[in-house]
Amino acid sequence: MSRDARWKALLELLVERGRLDVEEAAAELSVSAATIRRDFDQLAEQQMLVRTRGGAVVHGVSYELPLRYKTARHASEKERIAKAVAALVSPGEAVGLTGGTTTTEVARALAVRGDLASGSPALTVVTNALNIANELAVRPQFKIVVTGGVARAQSYELIGPLADGVLGQITLDVAVLGVVAFDVAHGAAANDEAEAAINRLLCERAGRVIVAADSSKLGRRAFARICAADAVDTLVTDSAAGSDTVRRFTEAGIEVVTV
């Protein structure tokens, strides 16, 4: 197992359990205790966990994995969701994409749509996510508008008043939101209030709003609200979403697409 794969697995275990012992982690990953101690020390130096005697705990109360370590979580579900979301976008539209692993997959799904391979542009994409802009900028069929702002390392998203200025001058056909949590009562939410503020502006500038979220995000709350549930037109999620959960969103007037 490579170091990056090992670090990803360690951080995943920490998110799930909140605390890990060296011996426990070594057994889980089939490596030596010395290797795990070294990994914990290096991750602690990057402020991605807190070292304890004999182990590690998550860093802070509201722990958030950096984007590069989230990519393997629910990967197949995110790919299916992304393909379904991309199918809801029509040629010629202006689309807003927030940051996140699911919206990154949406960008990739749009990039391989055959009917968007021509046109000038076939699609206008507005995003505050540096990684999404980087992937799509080489595609001549897309006009890419980047909001500006200050980069947030965990998500590669641009935040702050510089982004506000751009979003206040544009109109979108559709905004696609990646979220940390989505609940009928509490709405769509993120961990970071500055990201939530930019995502909220994208929603306000859009004719319709799509939440792209795997089932693990549903029925949950997070620190910073992006928008109320009634601001969302469509939820695209995976088939593991419970029938009661789907019913609550449907009763709230949200179209639910499961894949």
Rank of each mutant, 00 (worst) to 15 (best):
D4T: 12
A9E: 06
R17D: 10
R19W: 05
L20T: 07
A26Y: 07
A26S: 07
S32L: 08
E45C: 11
Q46R: 00
M48A: 10
L49D: 05
R51W: 06
G54C: 06
A56N: 04
V58Y: 11
V58R: 14
G60T: 11
V61G: 02
V61T: 01
Y63P: 14
K70H: 06
A72E: 15
R73G: 02
A75W: 13
E77N: 04
E79A: 14
I81P: 07
K83D: 15
V85P: 05
A86W: 07
G92Q: 03
V95T: 05
T103Y: 04
T104R: 10
V106H: 03
V112N: 01
G119T: 04
S120Q: 05
P121F: 08
L123H: 02
T124D: 13
N131I: 10
I132W: 13
R139F: 15
P140H: 10
V146I: 13
T147A: 01
R152Y: 05
Y156W: 12
L158W: 04
G165H: 15
L172M: 02
V174E: 02
V176D: 04
L177V: 02
V179T: 06
V180G: 15
A181D: 04
A181V: 03
N191T: 15
N191P: 15
E193C: 13
A197S: 10
A212H: 01
K217R: 02
A224E: 00
R225N: 02
R225A: 07
A228S: 14
D238C: 05
D238G: 01
S239Q: 14
A240T: 07
A240L: 13
V246D: 00
T250I: 07
E251T: 07
